[in-house]
Amino acid sequence: MLGLFIAQVLNGLLDGTYYLLIALGLSLIFSLGGIINLAHGAFFAIGAYLALLITPYVGYFGALVAVPLIVAGLGMVTERTLFTRFYRIDPLYSLLLTFGIAMVIEQGLRWVFGASPQSYNIPDILRGQVFLGDFIYSRYRIFLIAVAAVAVAGLWLLLNRTSFGRIVRAGVQSPEIVGALGISLRPYLSIVAGIGIGLAGLAGVLLSPIYTIHPAMGAEIITLAFVVVVIGGLGSFWGVIIAAVLVGLTKGVLVAIGLSSWSTAAIFLLMFVVLLLRPRGLLGERILRFE
């Protein structure tokens, strides 16, 4: 019984990875531009459908590389044409905008591909299970977690060890001073939107083999991703990671002890408690312009 409990805790820890990529992108786009991207889940869905489309030609691993790039491109176009008009006005408008984009994308997918869920499989080479003592785990998920870890590490290096990252971080704190130093944030805003949305596309490819590809899949995942961002604290890299792990763990443990019907409610309860004690989230930075 103890063995099972440990297995559940381990699985819960890993479970958080699935929201992590989406939550990180959301947090990134918000902290630089102040846009709460409700369409983030829809880009995740686009990623999944693109994987479905191009896998027959380039294979799963080809899709894994190409799809995030295409989705990042779409993200940059969206930023350039739409987000950019909403940076300086009430965030309520950008909320409405991205909500609208999400609906248009979902219905668009339904038009093009039909409402029926699409079938998509784990590549043969990644099928099978791995046994660690009593703990069984899917080989595909280990791959998934490894890819996510590489993406997250890459993002961290980009933000913390490059001049690009320094400007982005400065821009998060005080865009006016960055402007006064003669640096235009516009290209940075586009690239950050591209990276954030590209991560959602990557999550789309990674999750398609184990979840179902259907038009509303974005709406399905976006709520939990938001909860992760809120718990972790907007703008905080490590906060989002800790929150993702916490959320996965909460779910896993509740299922393990037979309270599965509470597993979703408990996550919202967790968010409630965190907000009560730390309104900015666990590691939320104080971003003056949003206070």
Partner: peptide, 20 residues
């Protein structure tokens, strides 16, 4: 017997229990 919340997409925790 487990009740599954309607928004659950991941069954890994349940599968571990079933296996046990």
């Amino acid at each position: 017997e487990d009740l599954v919340p309607t928004d659950a997409t991941d069954f890994s925790s349940y599968l571990l229990k079933i296996r046990q």
